[in-house]
Amino acid sequence: MKSSKRRNGFLVACIAPAVILFFVFMILPTLNVFRMSLYEKGAYSQTETFVGMKNFQVLINDSNFIRSMQNMILLIVTVTIVTFALALIFAAILTREKIKGQNFFRIVFYIPNILSIVVIAGIFSAIYKPENGMLNSIIGLFRDMTNPILWKGESLVMVSLIMAMVWQAIGYYMVMYMASMSSVPESLYESSNLDGAGRLTQFFQITIPLIWTNIRTTLTFFIISTINMAFLFVKAMTSGGPNGASEVTLSYMYSQKDAGLYGYSMAIGVVIFLFSFALSAMVNKVTDREPLEF
């Protein structure tokens, strides 16, 4: 009896601090997102008034919100496809081929991942600067630059964001796939070599199916983190501008908080929560395959 008491005491002492912190700073705020979305609460008044679904009714007619959703979905789809395609190809090349300086490439490709998004925003502002920017000065070698390309202008800003986000993410996923690809047994490639399979066939018939479980989990996490990354990049690189052309849903939520519309801001938060859950459930369903053993 005494020892079971001691065991329980030990367990409580170990787990309670984590549960309390987790509850106060993660569960409670999450519940608050949903609760406050039903209220009207302003920055300068202490009162909350219950308004039911009114915030959501305003939301579906808010053209800025619709645009921010479109931008977010555009970023999720394009950044995910480009990053995953490139990361898988590079990982396959670096694990399958006998490349000199393989380690060097791996180390370099991972660098963007350790930099703060603010630093990346600074680097890319030097790249995208219309006058004397790195990119325009290179393009200027091939064409006339009297009207410099405005990379952060309304028409190109999303493309510029996509390039920066791919630049940041590619190395991390490449290193991860290199780890799982190197565990695919060499004998499979050797026997398919005998059967005359080329590199492409091997890539699609052996490498991809065998690391599918890994691709699948990373895909779900990548999509969720892209919702967040898009916000970090937009906030540091463009602040949603010009004229809201690069606003994504999370940055729009944040700007509504800055405007003091807390209830409305949280209604956007609810949409983001539901959207990310629905999206990860969907990805999980679509990518479901029989796991292959090797």
Partner: peptide, 19 residues
């Protein structure tokens, strides 16, 4: 705690601030 993996901090930064 597993479910917590899916809660992104930046989704809940506004309620944390208000709290």
């Amino acid at each position: 705690f597993m479910a917590g993996l899916f809660i992104n901090v930046n989704y809940i930064v506004v309620p944390i601030f208000l709290m």
